[in-house]
C-alpha cells in the first residue's frame, strides 16, 4: 500500500483513502460544443500511458475529498510530488529519492 502526500491535508496518508482519477492536465475545452472530432478524440480517448513519469489525478476520496495532481514513476511506483488541482504542471521535478 502506497503512501500518498495529500497537498490539502499536508501529510502522507495511506493509499486506501485515495482513488486514482486518470491522467492529469487534459483540459476540457471552454467551448466544448465546437470541439472538432479530432480534438474530442484526443481529449476523451487518448491517454499517454507512459513507462516512467506520469502526471495523474487522484482524489483523497476518504479524506479531505479533494482532487489533486501527482507525478508518479510508473516503473518504481514512486510519487515524485503532488500538487493542488488547478496548479500548472511543474516545470521542474524534484530529484530522485536517495
Amino acid at each position: 500500500m502506497l503512501l500518498i502526500r495529500c497537498p490539502y491535508c499536508e501529510e502522507e496518508r495511506p493509499e486506501l483513502e485515495f482513488r486514482n482519477a486518470g491522467e492529469a492536465h487534459i483540459a476540457r475545452s471552454a467551448d466544448m460544443a465546437a470541439t472538432s472530432d479530432d480534438d474530442f478524440e484526443k481529449f476523451f480517448f487518448i491517454r499517454s500511458n507512459p513507462k516512467g513519469i506520469i502526471y495523474e489525478r487522484w482524489r483523497h476520496m476518504h479524506g479531505c475529498a479533494r482532487f489533486f495532481n501527482a507525478v508518479r514513476d510508473t516503473v518504481s511506483d514512486r510519487f515524485l510530488m503532488t500538487y493542488k488541482a488547478g496548479e500548472p504542471k511543474p516545470a521542474k521535478l524534484p530529484g530522485a529519492f536517495e
Partner: peptide
C-alpha cells in the same frame, strides 16, 4: 457524487 465533485473541483471551480 464523485462525477459531480470531479467537475466542480477540477473543471468548474
Amino acid at each position: 457524487m464523485n462525477h459531480m465533485e470531479d467537475y466542480l473541483q477540477t473543471e468548474f471551480p
